[in-house]
Amino acid sequence: MSTSSSQVVLEGRGVGRLFGTGPLAVRALHPTDIQVRRGEVLVIMGPSGSGKTTLLSLLGLVLSPTEGEVMLDGRTVSGGSPDALALLRRERVGFVFQQFNLMPGLSALDNVALPLLLRGTSARERAARARVALARVGLSDREAAKPRLLSGGQQQRVAIARALVTDAPVILCDEPTASLDGVTGKAVLNTLKDLATDLGRAVVVVTHDDRVLAIADRLVEVVDGHVHERASPSAREVHG
C-alpha cells in the first residue's frame, strides 16, 4: 500500500488493535500499513463491525494502537500521553462525525470556533475565522442558529466548517452522509472534495454509502479487520 512518500501526511505502519487480553481478547484490526496523502480523498468502506471505525480512531489518535505506530508528518505520534495526543489532534486533525456532535448550547459560529477556543485564539480572531469557514460551507446566514434549529445537512456542514477552521491538514470523516438525504449528502460530499482539491487537505471518509465513491481518489476496504486497497474506486464494484 505504498504511495509517494513526499505527499504522505498521515501513515499507519503495522498498526493494529486488539481489545481485551487473554482468551477474551478481540481482534478489531489486524496489523496493517496505510498512508494518507495531502490533497486526496481516501475512502474506507466495509461492512459493519469490520474494523473501519477502529482504523479511523487509530488514525485520528483517539485510540492507541496495540501494534505498530501512527505517523503524522513523518513523526511517530502514537504512544504519546493523552494530553500530547489531544494537542496533536487540536493542531493537525479535523473531525466530521456521523451524529455531527455539535454542542447544543452553542451557536453555529461558536461551534465552528470551538477548536480555536481550545487553542487559545483570541475571541476576535475566532469569530473572523469561523465566519470564513461557515462561508466556505455556505452557511453565513445561519451563524447565530443553535444546532436544533438547523437541518441535518446544515449541521453536518457546520461540523465540516469546524473541521476546517484550524487549517488542520487531515480531516477524518465518520459516515458523514449517513444521516442525510440524497441531495444534502451530495452537497456535503462536494464540500469534502473541495477541501481536498482546493485546500490540499487529506480527507479520510469512513462510510457505507456508495455515493461517496464519486469523490474518492483511493479506496480501501476493511473486512474482518483486514485492510485491502482497491486499485481504483470502481474496483470496489468488482470486489463487492
Partner: peptide, 15 residues
C-alpha cells in the same frame, strides 16, 4: 458525547 467531542477536538485534561 459533548465532553468526548471536546476531547476529540483536542481538549486536554487541564482544559
Amino acid at each position: 458525547r459533548d465532553y468526548g467531542t471536546l476531547k476529540a477536538l483536542g481538549a486536554t485534561r487541564k482544559d
